[in-house]
Design a protein around this nucleic acid. Structure first.
Lengths: 215, 215
DNA sequence: ATATAAAACTAACGTTCGTTAGTTAGGTTT
DNA sequence: AAACCTAACTAACGAACGTTAGTTTTATAT
């Protein structure tokens, strides 16, 4: 089995290898129906080969899911660099804008968007994915925002409140948007979501800002 | 097929009918593993009968899920009565406390708690459940809070802001708590969750209140 | 005691599932 | 030309699935 990374970021590359096709088709199907509800035969049919041929490229159905998750984790961006942060922090309005852009662009590309959906479905069935979600997609950002708010208080640009509470206040709305889109309205167009999410995240940031900024 | 309502609210009633046992066992299993991952044979084994006997009580596996959902909808409480509302609204602190209690007690009994979890899992696979969730568990409460905040503004007990934004601000945190518990930490004890949820909902209400109350 | 209806049983049906063994075609390297 | 590898193929395995038909037990009513 070759270990060439099966990334296949471009959806309409005509020179895709069979392994990449399997990857892409699986992601499409998994993200729409969930892992268990998709059969190897269905993947094979969509790719245009027999189901047994899948096993020339991936040793099991589970291995396809693993490859998808591995790809996603490698694509996770870690946000803007430290130095830039410090400057931004002095004007909270700007900072929130950057934060919102970060959040929304984190679900930007078609592939990552599908994986977000897949993760949502598999949260209930897959312990590994659930732990990943908790640690990397919830706790890490919240701890990050807590640190940011703490620093802002030290710099006296916002009022003194419990930074943890503030982090939850800010971040829980992002989770709400995520939930509304990926769980409840997954089929609507991405463009529409991006625009709406941007506006609502801006409203939210404004509300938070109004109550914590020092006039 | 008898149409006696299969409620079985008390978990340790020794005089449960077989139909009630099937209902309870199915709910247990569905809420832990999801509908598709539970087989009729597994339910039968847990109840202590053969799988074919299930069909003397429910005409299909799907019919068990339908019965569970029907029970849940019938248990949904609609909140405190109108007259009491008007009085409460004049002191927002009290009102939030009532709101939080409502929210948390809505997930109170062991049975409803399991169904909440089941709903979460089936959101992705079941269009009926997804629509129910959107309408009854998201839109309805948010519209309710929007009306409440509008009235509060009319009574001049809180500042004038966009009531829709405010409703989302208040409610999205509740959804966050729901998500954290039912999706990510389902196995922890209910008592622990109730206490933590109560505290955090109080912190949240205090934060919101601080930024909208008229001093 | 006898008849009746509910609810348990045994046995099997037709499908679909993930996966494997063994084989064949096509292209590249010796 | 021969050897080799990759990746396709055919065919099938055993297991699990939801469901059904037909039969026997059990409890209740006459």
């Amino acid at each position: 089995m070759t270990n060439k990374n099966s990334s296949s970021k471009t959806g309409n590359n005509p020179e895709k290898t069979t392994k990449e096709k399997i990857f892409d088709v699986s992601l499409d199907l998994f993200s729409q129906k969930g892992f268990d509800a998709v059969s190897v035969r269905e993947i094979a049919r969509e790719v245009g080969i027999r189901e047994s041929s899948i096993y020339n490229h991936y040793k099991s159905k589970e291995a396809i899911l693993d490859a998808i998750m591995e790809y996603f984790m490698s694509e996770l961006q870690s946000g803007p660099p430290e130095e830039e942060m410090d400057k931004l922090m002095e004007t909270p309005e700007l900072f929130f804008e950057v934060g919102a852009r970060d959040f929304i662009e984190g679900m930007n590309t078609p592939n990552t968007q599908k994986i977000w959906r897949l993760i949502s479905i598999e949260l209930y069935h897959n312990e590994k994915i659930r732990e990943f979600f908790k640690k990397e997609l919830l706790e890490a950002p919240i701890n990050g925002w807590e640190k940011i708010f703490t620093k802002m208080m030290e710099k006296k640009v916002i009022k003194e409140v419990d930074p943890k509470v503030l982090a939850y206040e800010y971040f829980s709305f992002a989770l709400y948007l995520y939930f509304e889109y990926f769980v409840l309205n997954y089929n609507e167009s991405m463009q529409t979501f991006m625009e709406v999410a941007w506006d609502r995240m801006a409203d939210h940031a404004e509300f938070i800002l109004d109550s914590i900024k020092i006039h």
